[in-house]
Structure formats: C-alpha cells, structure tokens
Design a binder for these strands. Structure first.
Lengths: 120, 120
DNA sequence: GGGATAGTTAGGCACATGCCTAAGCATGTG
DNA sequence: CACATGCTTAGGCATGTGCCTAACTATCCC
C-alpha cells in the first residue's frame, strides 16, 4: 500500500483517479467540451461521432461514474449536463503543483542571487 | 473517425490523452507531486512505494512517454525531473472549459434579467 | 576482481478498456 | 395498433494495463 508522500489526501483520491481517466480519452473530452455549451441528449452528443451507439453510451457511463456529468431521463430521452466540481478538483490539484514548483524556482532564484552577491 | 466538435485541436491532442492517462494513476500522481519539490533518482522516487522496482519503473516510463518527466543517466543512477509544459497544457484546457461554462452562465443570467424586466 | 548497488529487460497473469453486433425495452406518433 | 425513435443490455474480441518474479547489465567500491 503506497504511503502518502504529497500534501493532503488529494493525490490518492480515487475521485481524481477516475476524473483523469475519464479525460484521458479524446471522445470523452469532446463530450465534456460540448456540454460546456449546455445540456444535450444522448443523440445530440453521439451525432458527431462515427461510432456505434452502445460504444458511445459506454463513454457517457464512464463520464457519469467519474462525476463529470449527470443525466436525467424524461420519457425515452436522456439529457446530460456538465458537473463542474470534478474539473475544479483537477484545477485545485494543478494549482498545488504549480505552487510547489514555483516555490522551488523562487528558492533557486534566491540562492543564485546570494551566490552572485558573495562573488562581488 | 470522430469529427472535431470543440475548439481547436487540443481536445483531440494525443498529448493530452497521454498526460491525462499518466495522471489517472495515484502512484504516478504522487511521483509528479514529489518531483515538484526537485529532481530525484529512481531509488528516491521508489522508496515510499510498496512495489517491485520493475513495476515502479514502468510508471516512470509512462510518465516519461507522456512528457511529464525527463530523465538523465549518470553512471548507474538515473535522475528524473518534472517537465511542467504538459501540466500547463492541462491547465490551458481547463481554462477553456471554465471560460465556456462561465460564458453560458453569464448568458443565462442576462436572459433571466431580461425576462424579469419584461414582467415589470 | 569480486561483491554491492542501481536499474533494465523479459515473460507471465488477471483484469480493464474500447470497440463491435444483435437483440431487446420504453416511449412517442400517425 | 404498428411502426419509429431513443436508448439499454448482453456477449464477444483484440489490445492495453498494472502488477509479479527471474534474470541480466552497467557501474561503483573495498
């Protein structure tokens, strides 16, 4: 069982696992992009793709299981919506990484400055 | 062959595929977090994980193929460094999504405002 | 030069993934 | 009521993934 080496529980968060996994496929990323423009039905979402409907629906299932989208069925039509919280979680994780390497660069900068001062 | 539905080529970018895939695993995310604190050798990186070394090295290969890390061998020691550009690409993709759903919410806001004005 | 250290390569296994077709179900329409 | 539409479920297949052990190679050190 791996032990935590980073900050917080985010890095081992199963939710981040599934969100990154969901976004690792171009079809699913394009679905997320489309839903950013507003809700859409299964047929609407599937239309641009040259893929069998059951294959495409599997991608929607992956997105829903990861929490990136939610769906609601009315009659025979299922409508999907983007759920932004998982994307915000990815954003938070990235911000923590950026702060980390930026801090390191700042420290390197300060070190170089000190070395230059000593050489005067 | 899926046709583009989103903006730009980013969503179908194979590089984004592999970056998101690399980050979909908790072990690899922890490696990225550790490298944010500075370069480290294979042994350094592997130490916190209860995993056979060849298994762990495969994770490093996935990270390197995705471009998230680079490595350099000196003697028998291989040192890894974080390469931040792929994380910036993820950040860019997220920013585009956020702008998209924020724009949609702004439009919805404006619409509601207009409807309320009409009811006066 | 032999042993230790750091890492690599090869092959295997169980399971996951991403596509397919076929068949079926629920709802809507003329 | 028969047909159309929207979607679901089931099963299959080829490939990929994430772990393992065993054996090996390259480098370092006493």
């Amino acid at each position: 069982m791996p032990k935590h080496v980073g900050e917080g529980s985010g890095s081992t968060d199963a939710a981040l696992d599934s969100v990154f996994h969901a976004l690792s496929d171009p079809t699913r990323r394009q679905v997320v992009e489309r839903l950013g423009q507003g809700p859409a039905t299964t047929s609407d979402l599937a239309r641009p793709f040259d893929m069998a409907l059951p294959s495409f629906t599997q991608h929607l299932h992956v997105l829903e299981r990861s929490g990136l989208v939610t769906s609601e069925k009315k009659g025979r039509v299922r409508t999907y919506r983007l759920a932004t919280q998982p994307l915000e979680r990815v954003d938070t994780w990235l911000a923590v990484q950026r702060a980390r390497w930026t801090r390191r660069l700042d420290q390197l900068d300060a070190l170089l400055y000190d070395l230059k001062e000593q050489q005067r």
